[in-house]
Design a protein around this nucleic acid. Structure first.
Lengths: 260, 260
DNA sequence: ATTAGAAATAAAATGCATTATTTGGCTCGG
DNA sequence: CCGAGCCAAATAATGCATTTTATTTCTAAT
């Protein structure tokens, strides 16, 4: 009853020996990476809901390895914002913190705006063709109501778009922000994906036309539309600053002193 | 204490046995943190110059502990951008990369701008008093030419200022950017600290007056003045975007390679 | 009898000593 | 002079020991 409502988790990552002919296959370099990947997917897919306690020994036993790689993977995920933990007390999947989410929202607009700006300036025809492809994949997946495929295409669409900006550090920060962002809430909503398809179209059209202002506006609309969904779903108050919060954990992983 | 000075490296941190009566003392919770703190300080102070290879066993022996905490500390520092490493090949102190530094510069202006904006809006008299104190400490240290103390006060000045903004994620990103930024180059320059004192005064004055635009302008000037120093020191080309070069890898001398 | 406080206990993370893998250089053979 | 294969060094992984935290239980006082 722990892992395994989906086939891919039953055999998390198989034996080390794999036919080396398939070069593109998912062959990990270290076990730490395998564990990190596995946990990331399990968290993002909702298999470990927010607030779930992740015990080193348990994870290690599930994946049939010793706990050392698990600890290091947990540290990595903590740095990436997927989980939060404090010393000797273990790690939990980051709970929804409205105050933090508002900050994340603003940072996303700020940083993804930079990425769009550079992407519009640098995009080649080939870049646009790739982005177009992922946009179509996303639209198709939404039409088929294949939510897993939709999530994947959506990810690839944004990733490809931002990759053309050629700002690796900014992109890295944005990915951390994604990890902290309540996509799980957004994805639960029925009509959201359909709207997102239109927003992608608008964004891509502006990019193709080289319309910088239009692209940045479209991006802003896209992000804010998602946030509006979150607000509706979580019953946060209106537009006023979120005075009502959840904030049930200290959310300071690294430096909470014993005596304060 | 974060940035200390040289002498403290000889005796990294005094054994676990400490008169436990002094609770306020620097008492770490885990050895991993001790190691991380030690290495951060050593890197920022220039004790380990860029490119230095950090061997787990070596560090462990120096600090008289086993390699496990060292490993985890290295992973943490890698996530923070102090070092870069690849599997089975070890970690090196991150080398200077001009293209990355330019991106870091722009991100600093963007994010620290946000922090200043919120800080100006939220600062209380007590906050300003604390910041004033660190600014004076910095000025005094510069006057005495105590560069280690100057570095520490400078850090505390900015940290305190940004802490009042109450944007933990943004602050966290900024600290990562600091780790990646070539302060070692800036700190080598003679007159830089004196100018920095004036810039701090200007910034603080604008904050006290609640002059948002003035504060953001002062910040921008402060950051860009430091960057100008870097450009002078490293002989990067003029003001045009650094599309090209520098990227000098010290291993090979002047031999030109055919195709890479 | 009920509850506050302290001590014992259980659970889970951190740290250590050791073994197993990987990498890069070096030698030996062509 | 170049390439395949061995050797040394460093990192990654394992299993076990230690330390810390949280819970439970026992005692004592109101």
């Amino acid at each position: 009853m722990f892992l395994g409502h989906q086939a891919s988790y039953e055999i998390p990552f198989g034996r080390s020996a794999q036919p080396e002919g398939i070069t593109g296959a998912v062959e990990y370099r270290t076990k730490e990476e395998q564990v990190a990947d596995h946990l990331r997917e399990a968290i993002l897919s909702g298999h470990f809901p927010r607030g779930t306690r992740l015990k080193q020994a348990e994870v290690a036993k599930t994946l049939q390895i010793s706990i050392t790689p698990v600890r290091e993977a947990l540290k990595l995920l903590e740095a990436e914002g997927y989980i939060s933990g404090s010393s000797y007390k273990g790690a939990v999947v980051a709970p929804l913190d409205v105050a933090a989410s508002v900050e994340t929202l603003n940072l996303r607009i700020l940083l993804e705006g930079q990425l769009i700006r550079h992407a519009v300036e640098r995009a080649t025809t080939e870049d646009l063709r790739l982005i177009r492809g992922f946009a179509d994949e996303f639209a198709e997946a939404v039409r088929r109501k294949d939510s897993a495929e939709a999530r994947a295409s959506n990810y690839r669409f944004h990733k490809q778009m931002y990759a053309t900006a050629n700002l690796p550090q900014t992109l890295h920060f944005v990915q951390i922000l994604w990890a902290r962002y309540p996509f799980d809430v957004i994805n639960r909503v029925e009509g959201r994906a359909v709207t997102a398809v239109e927003e992608h179209e608008e964004l891509l059209r502006a990019m193709i036309e080289g319309d910088l202002a239009g692209a940045m506006l479209a991006l802003r609309r896209h992000i804010e539309a998602g946030w509006a969904t979150v607000k509706d779903e979580t019953e946060i108050g209106g537009d006023h600053p979120p005075a009502v919060r959840v904030r049930r954990t200290p959310r300071r992983g690294k430096e909470d002193k014993r005596n304060e």
